[in-house]
Simulated assay, not measured.
Amino acid sequence: MQKFLRSALFALYMVFVFLPFCGFVALTSWMSLRERYDFVTRWNNRHTLRVFERLLGIRYRVIGRENIPAQPAVYLAKHQSAWETLAFAEFLPPAAYVAKRELLRIPFFGWGMARMPIVTIDRAAGKDALAQVVDQGRALMAEGYSVVIFPEGTRTAVGTSRRYKAGGAKLAVAAGALAVPVAHNAGEFWRRNAFVKEPGEIIVSIGPGIPTAGRSAEQVNAEVEAWIEGEMLRLFPHHYRPAASRAEPLRAES
C-alpha cells in the first residue's frame, strides 16, 4: 500500500508540477537553445530527480564515468522506462535525444520537448527516416551536443532485448564520433506501463567509446549490441535464464 500511495503522489507531481513546467518551457522563445537546455536540466536535476529518490525511493549509481568522451559522441543505451529519458542529463554532457515526431504533439510534454535540442524521426518517411537522424544529429553535434539514441527503438524489460537498429551507429560513423554503449536496469524498478514504482538502486554502466573510423555502421552496431547485452548479463544475471547463452539473452516478442 505504501508503494501505491507513493506512486500516486508521484503521478500527481507529474500532472501538476512537471507537465506545467514543460508548458512553460514551450514559451521560452527568448532563450537560446543552450540557455534553455541548461535551465531545463538544472530544474529537472534539482526537482524531478529528487522526487524520484525521496518519494519513490529510486536511487542510481553510475559506473564508467571515465568513459565519457570530452567531445560530442553518440550514446547508444538500453531503453526500459521513462527514468533514463529524464535522468541521463544529470551525468551525461549536453545531449539531444532521438524521438518519434508524434511525441511533439503531446500537450505540454511534447510542446516543451520541441524547444529542446532533439532529433525527430518521421516514421512515415520509411528509409528516409534514417537520413533524418544522420542530418539532424550531425547538425546538433556540430553545435556541441552529443546524441542519445535507444537502438532497440522501444522500451524492453530487464532480461530481454530486441533487434538493435543501426541508425545510431550510422550517425556515429557519419559524424566520425565515438559510439558509447550504456547499460542499466531502470526497468527493474520502473516497469513499462506499471503505475507502481519499486524502490531500489539503478545501476548505469557506461562503456568505453567504440571508434568508428574506417568501419561500417553494421560493425559498430554489432559491437555496441555485444557490449550492452554482455554487460546486462554480467551486472544483472538474475534476470536471465540460467541456460541462456551469454551471447544470446532473452529476446522480447515482436
Rank of each mutant, 00 (worst) to 15 (best):
135 D>A: 13
201 E>V: 12
201 E>P: 05
118 I>R: 08
168 G>K: 07
147 V>N: 05
191 R>Y: 02
162 R>P: 13
166 A>R: 03
171 L>F: 08
199 P>V: 05
210 I>H: 03
209 G>I: 09
128 D>H: 15
186 A>N: 00
163 R>N: 13
148 V>P: 04
171 L>S: 08
150 F>M: 10
191 R>T: 11
123 R>Y: 05
113 M>H: 08
112 G>T: 00
145 Y>F: 11
208 P>V: 09
212 T>W: 09
125 A>W: 13
167 G>V: 09
181 P>F: 02
188 E>S: 09
199 P>I: 05
115 R>D: 02
158 V>G: 08
115 R>K: 09
219 Q>N: 13
164 Y>E: 10
176 G>E: 15
138 R>M: 12
208 P>H: 11
181 P>R: 03
200 G>Q: 00
137 G>R: 02
161 S>H: 13
199 P>Q: 06
112 G>F: 00
113 M>N: 04
208 P>M: 14
142 A>I: 01
165 K>H: 15
132 Q>N: 12
116 M>S: 03
120 T>Q: 12
159 G>W: 03
141 M>H: 10
179 A>E: 03
199 P>E: 03
182 V>Y: 01
199 P>K: 01
128 D>I: 15
154 T>W: 06
176 G>W: 15
189 F>M: 00
188 E>F: 01
216 S>H: 10
142 A>R: 09
172 A>H: 11
131 A>M: 15
139 A>W: 01
116 M>V: 03
168 G>P: 05
204 V>C: 06
190 W>S: 01
218 E>G: 14
159 G>N: 08
116 M>F: 06
192 R>S: 06
213 A>S: 15
138 R>C: 11
164 Y>C: 09
214 G>W: 05
147 V>L: 13
142 A>Y: 05
197 K>M: 05
137 G>Q: 00
159 G>V: 02
199 P>L: 03
203 I>E: 11
120 T>S: 12
186 A>S: 08
212 T>P: 02
142 A>F: 04
120 T>N: 10
127 K>V: 14
184 H>G: 02
146 S>M: 01
134 V>T: 13
216 S>A: 11
164 Y>R: 12
194 A>Y: 09
121 I>C: 02
218 E>R: 15
173 V>R: 04
126 G>Y: 00
135 D>F: 15
145 Y>V: 06
190 W>A: 01
127 K>D: 14
169 A>K: 08
198 E>F: 14
170 K>Y: 12
156 T>G: 12
203 I>H: 10
176 G>A: 10
115 R>E: 07
166 A>E: 04
171 L>R: 03
216 S>C: 12
115 R>W: 02
170 K>V: 13
209 G>P: 04
209 G>F: 11
157 A>E: 11
211 P>Q: 11
184 H>S: 01
121 I>T: 03
161 S>C: 15
152 E>K: 02
114 A>W: 07
142 A>H: 03
199 P>G: 06
174 A>N: 10
199 P>D: 07
186 A>Y: 01
202 I>M: 06
134 V>D: 08
149 I>Q: 05
132 Q>W: 07
152 E>S: 08
122 D>F: 10
157 A>G: 13
